[in-house]
């Protein structure tokens, strides 16, 4: 990979730091009028999600990280790995639990996910923003209660648990926002 000097730093740039791939979140140029310039950088470690703050002496350079986002289709899970496929080349990728993080709880098959690849190996998986899943377990619904604003937990067919309104019943199909874990609406078949 190419090296990037501090003057090329910008948010979104993927670089290697302490052996891990990172994305620059923010780069602040700092310089006394009559003094040494620095770049004060906030980076997200793409393996751990942790945010690091580092100061670079101006003119220093850092190795780029071969990190790309690709849209892949989820095929199946075999208990150890989650298997994805590139829909045009049919190339397959196996993601482990670390790469899946919390995303696995939203997937049942055929979803299009953003898989972040580092050196062509899966680093992280992002679920579609919205998924539609059936309720497999929840307390009995209170028919017609659309006004009180009460909520109860409901388990979905993939194992995810979300807070839902009291009128929701087992077998209902729910649209859920995977970024916030929030119920959006009931949907018809």
């Amino acid at each position: 990979m190419a090296n990037y000097s501090t003057s090329e730093f910008k948010s979104g740039l993927k670089v290697m730091l302490d052996g891990d791939p990172c994305a620059i979140i923010e780069n602040e140029f700092v310089k006394p009028g009559k003094g040494q310039a620095f770049s004060r950088v906030r980076l997200r470690n793409l393996k751990t999600g942790r945010v690091w703050e580092r100061t670079f002496k101006s003119g220093e350079s850092i190795e780029g990280a071969d990190v790309v986002d690709t849209e892949l289709e989820f095929l199946y899970a075999d208990g150890e790995f989650w298997h994805f496929m590139e829909p045009t080349t049919f190339e397959q990728f196996a993601c482990d639990a670390t790469a899946m993080g919390d995303t696995a709880q939203w997937l049942k098959g055929q979803e299009k996910c953003i898989v972040t690849l580092w050196n062509n190996a899966p680093l992280s998986v992002t679920a579609p923003n919205h998924v539609v899943l059936a309720v497999t377990e929840t307390d009995p619904g209170i028919r017609g209660d659309t006004a009180t604003g009460g909520v109860k937990p409901a388990t979905l067919e993939t194992g995810a648990v979300v807070k839902v309104p009291l009128f929701v019943e087992i077998g209902d199909l729910l649209k859920v926002d995977t970024r916030t874990n929030e119920y959006i609406s009931r949907v018809k078949e």
Binding site: Q36, F38, W52, E53, R54, T55, F56, K57, G59, E60, I62
Partner: peptide
Amino acid sequence: AIEGVGFDAL
């Protein structure tokens, strides 16, 4: 808590 790169050259 200032961590950095290139400080050896300062």
